[in-house]
Computed example of a mutant assay.
Amino acid sequence: MFQGSMVALVTPMLDDGTVDDAALAELIEFHVEAGTDAIVAVGTTGESATLTVPEHARVIKQTIELVNKRIPVIAGTGANSTFEAIELTSRAREAGADACLLVTPYYNKPTQEGLFQHFKAIAEAVDIPQILYNVPGRTAVDMQPATTARLSALSNIIGIKEAHGTVERIRQLIDACVDDFMVVTGDDATAMESMLAGAHGDISVTANVVPREMHLMCKAAIAGDRATAESIEARIGDLHRDLFHESNPIPVKWALHAMGRIGSGIRLPLTPLASEYHEVLTLALKKAGALS
C-alpha cells in the first residue's frame, strides 16, 4: 500500500526543452532526504503530454535507477490511446516501477463503460499494480465512483488518485470500493481534509517545493492528528492556491527555478509563468520557508 506524500515530480528541462538529467538526479535526492513517501515519475505534472514515448520511458527508467529502491516509484503511463497506455505501462514494468498511474483518457471523452474497458484492458495486459487517476478539470471526463468500484474488483488495480476536488467524492470512493482499495487525493487544497476523512495520502504538486512539510502534514492527517496537520497547513496552504494561478506545471516549475533547483525550461504549448504572478508566488514560498 502506498501512502503519505507522493510527489508528482516535475520533469526538469534545459532552456531548449531537452530533459535536464543532472537536475533530475538532484531533485530525486532532495525528495529522498526530505522524507517524500513516493515519487510519481512523468505524470501529467511531469509534462507527459509533450514528451515523446522514448523520452517518457527513458525518464521513468532514469528515475527508478536514481531512486535505487529507497522509496517507491510510481510511473505515469496513462494516455488517451489504450494501446499507447499499454505500451508505456509495459515499459515501466520492464524498468522496475513499483506501480503505474493511469490518467483517464483525455479529449476523446469516453463513456463510463469505455473507461471501464480501457482500464480493464491495461490491467489484463500488464501485470503490475495500477492506480487510476481521475482529474476531470484537465481531461473533460469524470469517472464516477460506480465505475471506479467496478474496477476496484480487478486484482492489480490497487487504487485511485482522485482529483475531483471535493472531500465528498473521497468519501464516496471509500464507501463504494473494495475494502483494501487505496484512495489518495490529487487535490492539494483539499488534501488535509481528505486524509482526515480516510484518504491514504496525497499525490501532490505542492510537495515539489516543500517536500518535508507535505510529508509531515500527510503523516499527521492520516493519523487523525488535526492540530498538527492544521499547524503545518497554516504555513504552506497558500501554495495550494498560488501554484495554480496558471496551468500546472507552469507555476511549480517557476517556483523550483526561483529556488535554484531547476532551470527555466518548459515545453510548448506551455509557457513561463506570467510576471504578474511572480510576487504572489514568491510571498507564498517565503511564508512556507522554501525561499529566504
Rank of each mutant, 00 (worst) to 15 (best):
Q3G: 14
S5G: 08
V10C: 04
T11H: 03
P12V: 03
M13F: 08
D15I: 11
D16F: 01
V19N: 06
A22T: 14
A23Q: 03
I28N: 01
E29T: 07
H31D: 03
E33M: 09
G35H: 00
T36W: 04
T50Q: 10
L51Q: 03
E55S: 10
R58S: 15
K61P: 09
Q62W: 12
Q62I: 05
T63Q: 10
N68S: 12
T82V: 11
I86Q: 07
L88G: 04
T89C: 12
A95K: 02
D98L: 11
A99Y: 00
A99L: 00
C100R: 11
C100K: 09
L101G: 00
L101C: 05
T104Y: 06
T104D: 13
N108T: 10
N108V: 07
Q112Y: 01
L115Y: 06
F116W: 14
Q117H: 14
K120E: 13
A121V: 03
E124Q: 13
A125P: 02
P129I: 01
I131R: 11
Y133I: 04
Y133P: 01
V135F: 08
T139Q: 02
T139R: 04
P145S: 06
A146C: 11
T147W: 07
A149H: 09
S155D: 15
I160Q: 10
A163W: 06
T166K: 08
V167G: 01
E168N: 15
I170V: 09
D180W: 04
M182E: 14
V184T: 07
T185N: 00
E193V: 11
A199L: 06
H200Q: 12
D202S: 13
D202V: 14
I203S: 00
S204M: 02
A207V: 00
N208P: 02
N208K: 02
N208R: 01
V210M: 08
E213I: 10
H215Y: 12
L216E: 15
L216C: 12
C218D: 03
A220E: 08
A221S: 06
R226A: 14
E230K: 09
E233W: 15
R235F: 11
I236E: 02
L239N: 08
H240G: 12
R241P: 14
L243A: 07
E246P: 00
S247H: 14
I250D: 02
W254P: 03
G263H: 02
P272R: 01
A274N: 15
S275Q: 15
E279R: 13
K286C: 13
G289M: 00
L291M: 08
